[in-house]
């Protein structure tokens, strides 16, 4: 079931496009914003509302990197693993994060505080290596910076 709030927001997006289903990515984003991720139940509810089959909507949901079809932690760390960050040594940051959080790429800490994901180029290569936590971008990150950055997210 979608909440009244979710439906209001989805209706707003539907009104902007000539075909109802064209708003389905927006609908996924809206529900994910409220619930953190897209469960099978959420997916079915959205598909029903968008007048699509769940399979059709899932083919869209699973195509995009940032639609989460698995539960994620309260905070999401996106570590850039693309070419300039590779040259500038993102692997040292990864090593540190793995040791500190005891998780690898694609995993969530046992306390649900962090999910760690690799991410394609963040477009700030003159300040590599870079990472994002939720909506915040961090640049020229060193191993020594990491603990301080993570402390800001509970």
């Amino acid at each position: 079931m979608l909440t009244a709030e979710e439906i209001t927001e989805i209706d707003h997006e539907i009104a902007l496009v000539p075909l109802r289903r064209a708003a389905c990515i927006e609908a996924l984003k809206i529900v994910q914003q409220h619930r953190g991720w897209i469960s099978d139940e959420s997916l079915r509810a959205i598909a029903d509302y968008m007048q699509m089959s769940p399979e059709e909507l899932d083919s869209v949901a699973t195509f995009y990197n940032l639609v989460f079809r698995k539960p994620v932690g309260r905070n999401i760390i996106l570590l850039c693993d693309s070419i300039t960050c590779y040259v500038m040594g993102y692997d040292k940051l990864y090593e540190h994060l793995r040791g500190k959080l005891q998780i690898s790429f694609g995993e969530t800490t046992a306390d649900g505080r962090f999910t760690l994901l690799p991410n394609a180029c963040l477009g700030t290569c003159d300040h590599a290596p870079a990472l994002m936590v939720n909506n915040e971008l961090y640049r020229n990150v060193t191993r020594d910076d990491l603990d301080g950055i993570l402390d800001g997210y509970k």
């Binding site: 693309s82 070419i83 300039t84 394609a120 180029c121 477009g123 700030t124 290569c125 003159d126």
Partner: peptide, 11 residues
Amino acid sequence: DEMEPGTFKDR
């Protein structure tokens, strides 16, 4: 949709 690795101009 700037996403070509190594590209940071449109930002």
